[in-house]
Design a protein around this nucleic acid. Structure first.
Lengths: 198, 198, 198, 198
DNA sequence: CGTTAAGCGAGACGGTACGTCGTGTCTTTGT
DNA sequence: ACAAAGACACGACGTACCGTCTCGCTTAACG
């Protein structure tokens, strides 16, 4: 068996306040200059920290930014509105807002690009996606239980159908996704799923 | 009256063969080293060209790569298979292949990210999207004429619903989109659209 | 025998006014930015001339500047004051002024340096020196005739002894050479030469 | 009370061996390619050093080369031969050799030119000259003590008279200065100084 | 209570790429 | 054939970051 507490390493322990200072600095600089304009030197200076201290904790600029960026993701539970349509609309709006506004939305494309190149990031990235989908899954499972969806429906595909268009509009065509549009998407997808499954 | 062609600028005109050499070099290096591994020096050397000649034509690495990258986009007409379902499946496969394979797919995330930062790139980017959508629009209009779709359907939204999920799976969740999945997406979206419009 | 007039070359003859425009531009830019700050592009632009036109006439930046610079050298005859001392003092002052003031003095060190590297320039440079020395030689010969100097004196060495110190002070120690100093130098050198020759 | 040595600056101290490596590289490249052919990149590569490391220490190519070049100046004490004539001949030969041969002589004109443009260099330059003159001054003072020179003689002017001609011949007329010529210069100058002072 | 080992801010280090500038040549159209 | 204009290949420039490496110092736990 392991030690009661895992064995304390010798030497001075890491200063936890430093992590926060670094994270804050990254978010600040990300807001101000974006991903491309962010430099490790600037982070170190803004956080009042040596560069080595940063590299001791993160292996690269991408990993550092990913951490700070994920902390900006607004993790909200998918609300239980009573109807599947209501739940999905609520969540779609959350997603749209997260992807459109603030630091998170601003940096998203860069992180997608970085994840394509770096497998470590890709892994973390996949976890972020999976975590969000699991929360939506809860609402879908609820709907199955209520009989709003038949058991044979591919619930993962439903998520792709709902989120995909919003994601695409934001990144590719650059057009906004209004509340009305979201409602329409939800309506069409649910109608399609129901009539197809039957 | 104006001159037949607008007045020739004085001085030595730009050498058009140089543009091609540069474009080819960019595609080669993009294939070999990806976006991050591509350097202007390497492009210049590979193309047998001075760096200044590149900067005379493109203002940044992103603009340069965007040009070369767009030339890799396989512009195929959406085939007329006789049925809307068949047309949309065919086009969805084209899109999936373009986005998944080759230089185009490899560099896509980087270009999306670059477009977010640089408005010039965003503009060019939007044109690429619009051009593709116009081709799909032809197939959708055909379907309306045939009576497969009622006139009230938002044809642009249909495109978002079809392409969005594929785009999302490729960039976010990283999962492949099989032919079966594409068929399912097309079926669900069409069913949803039809039952909702009625 | 040659043609009465030497054979006219075919094609458009060179425009002589262009040479003047270039020379003027070089002197202007030399005055403003010095040798290091002068660029061929700037000369061409200031003179309203193509770069090729410059290179058609001068083989390099150094040659171009040398020409313009030599045109600034104030060629004055060594005055005949009646006494050797007077002649040498007068000429020494001319030399000091040329070397200290104006474009000529300012660019002199750069031309010395350029001549060290480029043999063509060195040759032209030597001619400039020889031409000046020949003029002084006239005054010295006059003095020999008058009996102020005995025939055995090495007149070339006398020139080195007179000019050398002024040249050295200007370029190396950076100290000015006053009229009094010049008078002293002339006095000492003449006294030395006379007492040694005797 | 102050610290024995002034307080150590924070951060990693500069590596002194790097300075030496750079200086050596500069001398090598100067010997091989001259001032014009020397590039900062080449120095960095030859010294196994980053370019930034060079620019951290020297502000320009001129300043860098000046430092390396001054280290090549053969500082020899003016020998005490017993007679002023002997001392001055010995020193004049040293000067001629320094100015004529090796890296020092080769680069001298460029440094003179650079010093004319850059005041920082000019300052360092003046110190080099002053240092050399101080050593000659010792020999001249010795002569005054011995009674070879009367106290009224301007010893600085004597230096100009001796060195100037050699300097002038090297840089301007390009003619060599033989041992015989040096002997003659020394003889004439001393004779002139003595007969004038009396 | 002093030793030890790691953390810390600071900043120098070897590199790599950048985007600009200058050189000397070449290629247009117009004289 | 010469001229202005300006594109061209080349190559050096000086800057900016990267990620690593010393420095001198602090900060705990262990002996």
């Amino acid at each position: 068996m392991e030690n009661d507490e895992e064995r304390r390493k010798p030497g001075r322990p890491r200063d936890a306040t430093v992590d926060d200072a670094i994270m804050d600095a990254v978010v600040d600089l990300l807001t101000e200059f974006g991903f491309r304009g962010l430099t490790i030197d600037a982070v170190a200076h803004r956080a009042g920290v040596g560069k080595a201290t940063i590299y001791r904790r993160w292996s690269s600029k991408e990993a550092l930014v990913l951490d700070a960026w994920m902390a900006c993701y607004p993790v909200e539970a998918v609300p239980d509105t009573g109807s599947l349509t209501g739940d999905l609309i609520a969540h779609s709006r959350q997603f749209r807002d997260a992807v459109t506004t603030g630091v998170f939305g601003r940096v998203l494309p860069q992180m997608v690009a970085a994840a394509r190149v770096n497998e470590d990031l890709a892994e973390v990235f996949r976890r972020l996606v999976a975590e969000r989908r699991a929360r939506v899954r809860v609402a879908l499972d609820r709907a199955v239980e209520r009989g709003e969806l038949s058991a044979g429906v591919d619930l993962e595909l439903v998520q792709d159908l709902l989120i995909g268009p919003l994601f695409y509009r934001t990144l590719m065509s650059g057009e906004p996704s209004s509340d009305e549009l979201i409602a329409e998407v939800v309506a069409i997808v649910l109608a399609g799923v129901l009539s197809t499954a039957g």
